[in-house]
Simulated assay, not measured.
Amino acid sequence: MMLRKTAAAYCELSEAAFEREVASGALPMPVLLGGKPHWHREQIDQHLADMSGAGDWRASSNLYAA
């Protein structure tokens, strides 16, 4: 479980950007633990995996073409 600051850093986002992604539904809502919002790393990972779709997005990018 991660506090907002740690969860945002895990996603390499500012805390404000992280909050926008949570509010938009792109990232999971927190749960209260000890009276503070915490995010579960595996839920964040699942949301990020869902965002990227099936496969590696770089495979279809000219920037990363082999």
Rank of each mutant, 00 (worst) to 15 (best):
A59P: 02
R20Y: 12
H40A: 09
A54I: 05
D45L: 10
M51G: 12
M51P: 00
P37A: 09
M51N: 02
S14L: 03
A7G: 03
R4F: 01
E42M: 07
Q46C: 01
A23W: 00
A16P: 02
S60H: 06
L13A: 05
E19K: 14
G25Q: 07
L33R: 13
G55R: 08
A17V: 00
E21S: 08
R4S: 08
S24H: 07
S52G: 07
L63P: 00
L33N: 07
G35F: 05
G55T: 08
Q43Y: 04
P37D: 02
E12L: 09
I44S: 07
R58S: 04
E42L: 12
V31I: 15
P30V: 08
A59N: 09
R4N: 09
L3G: 04
P37R: 11
A7T: 03
G53K: 05
E12A: 14
L13S: 02
L33D: 11
M2K: 03
H38C: 15
L33K: 12
V22N: 02
M1C: 03
Y10D: 05
W39F: 09
M2L: 15
Q46F: 01
E21W: 05
A66T: 08
G53Y: 02
W39Q: 07
Q46S: 08
A16R: 15
S60Y: 03
Y10N: 07
P30C: 08
T6P: 00
P30D: 10
H47A: 15
E15V: 13
A9M: 03
R20H: 13
L13R: 12
S14H: 06
C11F: 04
L27E: 02
E15Q: 13
L13N: 01
A16L: 13
A26I: 00
A17L: 02
A17I: 00
Y10V: 00
R20Q: 15
E15D: 12
G25S: 09
Y64S: 12
G53C: 06
F18T: 02
H40G: 00
L3C: 02
W57H: 04
R58Y: 05
S61N: 06
Y10C: 05
Q43T: 08
Y64R: 00
G35M: 11
A8L: 03
A26H: 06
S52I: 01
Y64A: 12
M1D: 07
R20C: 10
V22F: 03
V31R: 14
A17T: 10
S52Y: 05
A49E: 06
S24W: 02
L33I: 14
S24L: 09
L13C: 07
L3K: 11
A16N: 13
Q43G: 00
L27Y: 04
V22Y: 05
L48A: 06
G35A: 13
G25M: 06
A49R: 14
T6L: 10
D45Q: 11
W57K: 10
I44H: 10
H38S: 10
Q46I: 01
I44N: 05
M1A: 13
A17F: 04
L3P: 00
N62S: 11
P28L: 09
A17R: 12
D45A: 13
V22G: 04
H40T: 09
M2I: 02
A26Y: 00
P30E: 06
W39E: 07
S61L: 07
M51D: 01
E42T: 14
A16M: 08
E42P: 01
K5V: 11
M1Q: 11
M1N: 10
E19G: 02
E21H: 14
A65S: 11
Y10I: 05
A7N: 06
